[in-house]
């Protein structure tokens, strides 16, 4: 379970990196090549996010909030503030997950770090702008009123876990309208970003200290 959890965490991160990168110059891009060029200038990204989890059993979405940090080439921090605090930190080829216990952050002991490393390698590929070259996902772009990017898992390990990921970009404002991680027809997660800051200095302790 934990390996899959971590994989899912990083699918979220990959998606978010993808969408934040899309904020830059995507309005003018008509294929993945433009995104590849844009991503070369990214040194850091940080943003606040709101996650809405919808499923049949819930009458209204379960809202989570957090913050996301990235520093090239491979440092990540994906942190939830509520409803429960948890942090995934990837730094210098070392990936850990922390959860809150008795008011303190403690390392998640259930393992899965190996899976996280594997996925982190995939993240590195995405950060290089190789969105359509990741064998784990088939990526398509549909130019409609908005631009829709659809990522479909190609590997059997994702079967029954994630159906697809949809990223909707506004052509007019060059901003991301929505990201949906769809697990099944009645079960999906939507993540919205705000206060996105590109290439603003991030204190290195963000990627080392879970507190």
């Amino acid at each position: 379970m934990q390996a899959r959890c971590k994989l899912y965490t990083f699918v979220c991160i990959i998606t978010c990196i993808f969408l934040v990168l899309g904020l830059l110059n995507y309005a003018g891009a008509n294929d993945f090549e433009q995104l590849r060029k844009d991503s070369a200038n990214i040194k850091t990204i940080q943003a606040h996010f709101v996650q809405k989890k919808s499923m049949k059993i819930l009458s209204r979405p379960l809202i989570s909030e957090g913050r996301f940090y990235y520093a090239a080439p491979d440092s990540l921090r994906w942190e939830y503030f509520k409803p429960i605090r948890s942090i995934v930190i990837a730094y210098k080829n070392n990936t850990k997950r922390y959860i809150t216990s008795g008011g303190k952050m403690v390392e998640d002991k259930t393992g899965g770090a190996q899976a996280m490393k594997i996925v982190l390698n995939e993240v590195a590929g995405w950060m290089s702008g190789k969105y359509d070259q990741n064998p784990s996902f088939a990526a398509t772009i549909n130019e409609e009123a908005n631009t829709r990017i659809t990522l479909t898992p190609t590997e059997k390990s994702m079967t029954g876990m994630i159906e697809k990921i949809e990223i909707l970009l506004s052509k007019k404002s060059a901003t991301v309208k929505s990201v949906k991680i769809i697990e099944s027809a009645n079960n999906f997660t939507q993540i919205n970003f705000d206060n996105v800051e590109i290439n603003k200095a991030i204190n290195p302790s963000i990627f080392q200290d879970a507190q």
């Binding site: 899959r4 959890c5 899912y8 989890k53 499923m55 959860i99």
Partner: peptide, 12 residues
């Protein structure tokens, strides 16, 4: 249902 903090549903 059981889900992870990241929103992934593990059991329903």
């Amino acid at each position: 249902a059981i889900m992870t903090a990241e929103g992934m549903v593990m059991f329903e």
